[in-house]
Design a protein around this nucleic acid. Structure first.
Lengths: 136, 136
DNA sequence: CTTCATGCAAACCCTTTGCACGTCG
DNA sequence: CGACGTGCAAAGGGTTTGCATGAAG
């Protein structure tokens, strides 16, 4: 289906993938680096960045721009086009299909005269758990 | 209508506003700083950042996160909630109302269980002019 | 073996901060 | 005049790069 980017199965990459799997919400490169140090793994800063880029290209990660301007990542299954809902309290995130959004995008294209070929929708709020707990 | 944030009409602020007015598409803080130098204006780096923040708070600018991860700004009229369509060729941008998006957001909230309280939609494509010229 | 990935450190941004001076109102 | 804004330089983060070593296929 896909040209599958040529990459090697290296120890650092497996380690980083494992660290990501243990995380719940979104995380930054610095978070991962800290995780690695905590686990006594010797992984270079550069490797973390290079690997995050790689995973993002492969679709296993998606890069988010938080409202604060921070660059974060979330794990996601490389599936159809989708968007993320991010909890501003605990950082958890969920994937959502863009049902209905296609129509909105098309309409915006028509009205603006732009030929729209990509878009990003990011949603922020409180996840069910944090709602219940009453976090603000 | 609005508490109108208290600010002073200073020379640097007017100068920066003028530089912004001369720009067409989106721009970064570095762009503005370069503009200022080019015009032989003595404006400190810090002032540019502080002023951009100020304008953004006032609603005269909106901060965009380009797909590249760059932080850019676009001028906009401080009006209702809206979104921006950005031309990936020339950087021009247009404002669009979020007609229909409200419904999508509501639906996503229902399905995901999140209480969504803010969102960002950014659209990328080619503006009418670049389409005509055939830019890719 | 050959190619590709790593680690390290330095280099490079971009953005913020501390502080003394200038100025708007 | 008093509060607020400015410029400068330095600090602070985040991200990238150059290069020799090491591992993968």
């Amino acid at each position: 289906m896909r040209p599958s980017i040529t990459t090697r199965e290296t120890a650092p990459r497996k380690a980083i993938a494992a660290l990501i799997a243990e995380r719940h919400g979104h995380f930054t490169a610095a978070d991962l680096l800290a995780d690695a140090r905590r686990s006594n793994l010797t992984i270079g800063r550069a490797t973390v960045f290079r690997t995050l880029d790689l995973f993002a290209e492969q679709g296993a990660l998606e890069r988010l721009d938080l409202p604060s301007g921070e660059h974060a990542y979330v794990a996601c299954v490389p599936t159809e086009h989708h968007h993320h809902v991010v909890c501003r309290s605990c950082g958890a995130s969920a994937e959502v299909a863009d049902t209905g959004l296609q129509a909105v995008v098309r309409q915006i294209g028509d009205r603006s005269g732009y030929r729209i070929d990509s878009h990003r929708l990011e949603l922020y709020g409180l996840c069910p758990t944090c709602r219940r707990v009453g976090a603000q």
